[in-house]
Simulated assay, not measured.
Amino acid sequence: MSLPLTISGLSVSSKRGRLLLSVPDLDMPAGSLVGIEGASGAGKSTLLYALAGLQEAKGSIRWGDQDLFALNAGERARFRANRIGMIFQDFLLFEELDAGENAALTALFRPRRERAILRAKAAERLDFLGLGGETRDRNVVSLSGGERQRVAIARAMAAEAPVLLADEPTASLDRAAADRLIEDLVNLTRSSGTTLIAVSHDQTLISRMDRVLTIRDGAIVADRKAVR
């Protein structure tokens, strides 16, 4: 399951009124793997956070039939919890919990009847990413950077959200760990049909996407197929 994306008239401005991002129109089919590249400060993360409903903006961001900005803040939070998984470059794991508990964290915020299913899905994702068995019970402090990022991916995808947004997911990893993570992330999203949008400076990750958007000074200046 995945969702298509339609953007129209999107703009984000600073509190002082400076235009930070302008996307007149953009369409992505469901199940797309899209990379976003550009210099630091170009507006990549601003776009990503707008797509998650975490950035105040004007215009329309429509995931399937739902326009994010037709929702109030509480409704957007519920939509995000059910429909959008997020991966951050600094993992954002709870160090007092083990890998399995971190991956299943979403279950704590769901109705009791859904919790066992979510924990089982989290365990399945960890197994797929090579973190099953005894590793699942290890405290995340004892895991390598690549392993911690895999836990973060499992957490983001445990609820089988149709959309996955990733902000520099390989930035904290060495090359070997980054390459392994990219392979796992691409295989997992393709096998599940998830729509993946990844902001990255990592050209190895960018090259594995179906489509690449280049952002400069808050505008999309190129839209191309990835070169493998």
Results as ranks from 00 to 15, higher is better:
D90V: 01
G74H: 07
L20Y: 02
Q149P: 03
R136L: 12
V199M: 07
V199I: 15
L213Q: 05
E134R: 14
H201F: 06
V212P: 04
D65V: 13
I197D: 12
V199D: 05
L105N: 05
S45N: 01
A107H: 11
D174F: 12
R18W: 09
V163E: 08
E114L: 13
A178Q: 07
D210M: 05
F109Q: 06
V23N: 06
V34C: 07
A222H: 09
L131D: 12
R136K: 13
G85W: 06
K121M: 13
P4K: 01
E147H: 04
V199H: 04
S192Q: 15
T46I: 05
E101Q: 14
A159K: 02
L173K: 13
E124N: 13
A123L: 09
R180S: 14
G31Y: 10
V163P: 01
A158K: 03
M209F: 08
E168N: 05
A226H: 04
T46A: 02
L71R: 04
G38P: 11
M157R: 09
L205C: 09
A116Y: 02
T46C: 03
V34K: 00
A222N: 08
K225G: 12
T6M: 05
R16P: 01
L129M: 11
S32C: 07
F109W: 11
A152V: 08
S2F: 10
G100H: 10
F128W: 10
S8N: 15
I197T: 14
E75L: 02
L105P: 00
H201W: 07
